[in-house]
């Protein structure tokens, strides 16, 4: 009797399944959508990681758009110059120079620098911590959890011993996934030619900002005066903002007198992945 039920169950489900799959197979033939065969070829050329750096919904969408000329061949930021060249030769058009971007974490207030004002026992993600404000007294800085590192699909970020994310300058492709993952918008995408950064997003007045973090921007405007070009650096919302169109990127003159060392000339700050794992991690261990 029990055996009967098993056979009947399996049989009836099998028949229902078979009938529906036959119907679907017929419908698939009937409603077949003609697709450009070149889409698959383009997908082979681009990294196909669905990083979202191009701003389109996935790599397939990028492939469709690039074939009809809606986006430029340099649109794939993760692929960079090599993919732009490959796409150019595949499509038979002239190659263009791709702008290389990379992510910059604009906060240096880690465990050692930032003042903690509260205890946070919730979920250890930045998005969750953003509801309550996290542990640190600074309401603009990094939470110190790893939402951005998790968002990176290219293994180009890690949390350092100071509880801050570091970007590996050589591995970062500039897709911007980390910048979108950060609830406090402290990660910005910059062109590789940019070297002078104000590593602070604290918009409070100097006296307040100085209390919550050792490396906060207090808007003293010394860097504004020291910048060789007028208007190269401006104070906006109690923050020194570098104007990359005007301010020369080949001198470290503006950062010399910075009292909190929040504005930095970034040549040494650009860490490669190899350097991080071979040197920095080893000394820490």
């Amino acid at each position: 009797m029990t055996g009967d039920i098993i056979i009947i169950s399996a049989g009836s489900m099998g028949i229902i399944g078979a009938a529906l799959s036959l119907f679907l197979a017929y419908a698939d033939k009937k409603f077949k959508v003609e697709e450009d065969p070149r889409i698959e070829d383009v997908l082979q050329i681009i990294p196909n990681t669905n990083c979202g750096g191009c701003g389109l919904a996935g790599c397939r969408m990028f492939a469709e758009s690039v074939l009809v000329g809606k986006v430029s061949i340099t649109g794939c930021v993760a692929g960079g110059q090599s993919v732009a060249d490959a796409l150019a030769s595949y499509l038979g058009v002239e190659t263009q120079t791709a702008n290389k971007l990379y992510a910059v974490v604009l906060c240096r207030g880690g465990e050692k620098e930032a003042v903690k004002s509260s205890i946070y026992k919730g979920e250890k993600t930045c998005v969750a911590a953003n509801f309550t404000g996290g542990e640190k007294a600074c309401t603009y800085g990094c939470f110190g959890y790893d939402d951005c590192v998790k968002a990176c699909k290219f293994d180009a970020m890690a949390m350092n011993d100071n509880g801050l994310p570091v970007v590996f300058y050589d591995t970062c492709v500039g897709c911007g996934a980390c910048a979108r993952a950060c609830p406090r918008f402290i990660i910005e995408m910059h062109d590789v030619s940019h070297k002078l950064f104000n590593y602070c997003r604290n918009k409070d007045k100097g006296a307040v900002a100085r209390k919550v973090c050792k490396v906060s921007c207090i808007a003293c405007s010394l860097c504004v005066k020291d910048c060789p070009v007028e208007g190269g650096i401006e104070i906006i919302d109690n923050l020194a903002v570098v104007n990359y169109d005007k301010c020369p990127q080949d001198t470290d003159a503006p950062i010399k007198r910075c009292p909190t060392k929040c504005i930095l000339y970034d040549e040494e700050e650009k860490i490669t992945k190899e350097f991080y794992y071979s040197t920095l991690k080893k000394t820490a261990a």
Binding site: S9, M13, I16, S21, F23, L24
Partner: peptide
């Protein structure tokens, strides 16, 4: 009819999944 009402979830989900597939094909076309 075959006295197998315990299979309702499985059977219903199969039907629903097939229908959604069909709707997806139709809308895509």
């Amino acid at each position: 009819k075959f006295n197998i009402p315990f299979l309702q979830y499985v059977a219903f989900i199969i039907v629903i999944a097939a229908l959604v597939q069909f709707v997806e094909m139709f809308i895509r076309k």
